[in-house]
């Protein structure tokens, strides 16, 4: 890399045609090339291949033996000899729509709770009190614990016979007998939500806190002198001013929630009540040897997320690149 740059410089000083700005621009492209190349190979190319596979009948054991079958993995119309028409493919697969529903429900509920709780924790951390540093350190712990580890810790705490959570609830008189949190179809989603909210609220709180700290203190001072009620201060001052930071935090969390895999795979394996789009796609790709079918499902997930992001940026006018205020 060094030689290229020095050559550019020699060329510039020798011919005198290259201005400083042009020379810098040339160096910039050389600097960017390795990164762009790396991202092309690990992101763009695999994505294109996944989309391609979704239009073939490729199998896991024979990656190069697939044939182009068009949209059959998505939707396929088949006329039986009896004249009856049968539809097949992901788009009419109830298991897929169940996964879509689970993913959307999980994302909306978890992000909603995390935003509200995160904002509450951030407001606490924004106040000045003794032991604030300690509280901030404490809330970093759930964030620092690996997802798989937190899934296992909670699986043990939520255990139906020996779990401490059931023990607490029984002692407090809320329930009579232990609940099989992760195994029961009625509570599996609740269990997943509890763990996710526990693990991710700190992240939301830190992002909200950063937003809160940008608000000048004298605004609050002025409101206090004017005798404005604290709730009104929150709704009319804090919330509008923290909104941009909150919008960015919500979109990051939402994107993360929509692709959730590890927590659900470990906490509630094979539960119909929690299986998300990522889980069902991987199941088909790897475990069930329906490689092309799984590719179609992961392509759909990608499309859904891409549409969601475009809508959000367009409607919310979120400036993600941070270029506007430069």
């Amino acid at each position: 890399m060094r030689s290229d740059i020095t050559r550019a410089k020699h060329h510039g000083s020798g011919g005198g045609e290259l201005s400083l700005e042009a020379q810098r621009r040339r160096a910039a492209f050389l600097f960017l090339a390795p990164m762009i190349l790396a991202l092309f190979f690990v992101a763009a190319w695999p994505l294109l291949r996944t989309i391609y596979f979704s239009f073939t009948n490729t199998s896991l054991t024979n990656l190069y033996g697939g044939e182009w079958i068009g949209f059959d993995n998505y939707l396929q119309r088949r006329e039986l000899s009896s004249g009856r028409v049968v539809w097949r493919g992901t788009l009419v697969d109830p298991a897929w729509w169940n996964a879509v529903w689970n993913t959307v429900w999980f994302s909306v509920v978890s992000v909603l709770f995390e935003t509200v709780l995160g904002l509450m924790v951030a407001l606490v951390l924004n106040a000045e009190f003794k032991g604030r540093g300690l509280v901030r350190a404490a809330i970093l712990i759930p964030w620092a614990i690996p997802t798989i580890v937190s899934a296992k810790m909670w699986a043990w705490m939520l255990n139906d016979q020996f779990g401490i959570l059931n023990d607490m609830l029984i002692k407090l008189g809320f329930i009579e007998r232990g609940i099989a949190w992760t195994a029961s179809i009625d509570t599996a989603m609740t269990a997943v939500l509890i763990v996710d909210i526990w693990k991710t609220t700190p992240f939301m709180a830190l992002l909200c806190l950063a937003g809160l700290q940008m608000i000048p203190r004298d605004i609050y001072e002025a409101a206090r002198i004017d005798g404005v009620h604290p709730f009104k201060v929150f709704w009319k001052i804090t919330l509008p001013l923290v909104r941009p930071a909150l919008m960015v935090a919500v979109i990051f969390r939402m994107l993360d929630a929509l692709r959730v895999f590890d927590l659900i795979y470990v906490l509630t394996p094979n539960s119909k009540a929690t299986k998300t789009m990522s889980v069902i796609s991987r199941e088909n790709l790897i475990d069930f040897d329906k490689f092309a079918y799984g590719s179609a499902q992961s392509t759909l997930l990608f499309a859904i997320i891409a549409i969601f992001v475009s809508l959000y940026i367009w409607l919310g006018k979120v400036d993600l690149s941070g270029e506007a205020n430069r």
């Binding site: 692709r259 789009m277 790709l285 997930l301």
Partner: peptide
């Protein structure tokens, strides 16, 4: 545009590249 693209890649659903990466 490049910055937003890079950010977009980090927000990728990893499952969307799984099949292609498996091949690679």
């Amino acid at each position: 545009l490049l910055l937003v693209t890079i950010l977009g890649v980090s927000m990728f659903p990893q499952i969307a590249v799984l099949a292609g990466l498996f091949e690679l």
